[in-house]
Nucleic acid binder design. Structure first.
Lengths: 168, 168
DNA sequence: GATTTTATGTCAGTCATGTTGACTTATCTA
DNA sequence: TAGATAAGTCAACATGACTGACATAAAATC
């Protein structure tokens, strides 16, 4: 039968522990994204815009391709939100100097402002959770999440080594 | 100005630590939901169906109202996925004995099977992440996520008090 | 120099999942 | 009996994904 082993699990691999992890992620993520969503709605934006603003803010000068590979969506999906953000003056595109096919992305002043507003909303929730849990717990939180994601994205979170490489 | 304080933060509240938390959640959640999504697609279902199956599986006999308040979506949104799951024989509805207006929800055999398949997919990822991180890290992970969600949902994760009711 | 590949963008159509608003039916409660 | 509640339905709409086909400019290669 397709039974769930709940037998010889030394410590923390019981069925209900796993179940709890699933719900933990569901509720925490739901609430974590809830506040920014409200703020974004005031601009007529959604979560997709947030992700674009976030990653462009973090990696100014990144190309459209790089953004696509981080977000793992199609260029048609990205196009809608990105062109909206460009049209409304939150993101600026400049042709690459070396490769003039590329459009290097960066936030405008207006984009930086929204980025910061969004950041501050999320910052409060994280600071609260971190403070209430303590430094040791935070290390555990980081470790579990890093081990939960695909390996290809883990280098981004290396302790000393900064994220992959600025631009290209 | 709307500057982000990065001044007197004793331990772990630096801007880039917060930023890392944001990305950690994004990447881990994206990959955590990716595998179940693929499995669900084989049934013509989506993530919304998964959530319904999960919570009905965890709380057999729950009412539609209870499900709505957990999922925090409108009944019209729920209706679409729920009636699909009922029509295709994954969920069974029986009128409440005390209050005959209620439709008590539970998984059918077919529903239980899918529930288990979905669980097993997620279980593997979680077990791997937990094992690679260790018991202490897991405690930290739980603590941070609990403190990140709204207080109203925290009782669900109380230490000793089992979640509402196990059974099944 | 001509050809192919790459980076980006666009048009068109579809799907999944959320929303609001209005309304119905059955049943419980005051 | 009147009103509130649990559940469901119809309709219209928004967002953010998807596929497929095609266009343009620039770089890379033959």
């Amino acid at each position: 039968m397709t039974d769930i082993k709940s037998g010889p699990n030394p410590l923390f691999l019981r069925t209900d522990e796993i179940m709890q992890a699933i719900e933990l992620l569901f509720f925490a993520y739901r609430d974590f994204t809830g506040e920014p969503d409200e703020l974004l709605a005031q601009y007529g934006f959604g979560r997709a815009h947030h992700r674009v603003i976030h990653f462009v803010g973090r990696h100014p000068g990144m190309t459209v391709s790089e953004l696509l590979s981080i977000l793992q969506i199609t260029k048609q999906s990205l196009s809608r939100v990105l062109s909206q953000l460009v049209a409304e003056g939150f993101i600026k595109q400049t042709p690459g100097e070396i490769d003039r096919r590329q459009r290097l992305l960066e936030l405008t002043e207006k984009g930086l402002e929204l980025d910061e507003k969004l950041f501050n909303v999320q910052r409060q929730r994280i600071v609260k959770a971190y403070k209430e849990s303590g430094a040791e717990a935070v290390a555990g939180f980081r470790s579990v999440l890093i081990n939960m994601m695909e390996e290809s994205d883990r280098p981004r979170f290396a302790k000393k080594t900064h994220p992959p490489s600025p631009r290209r």
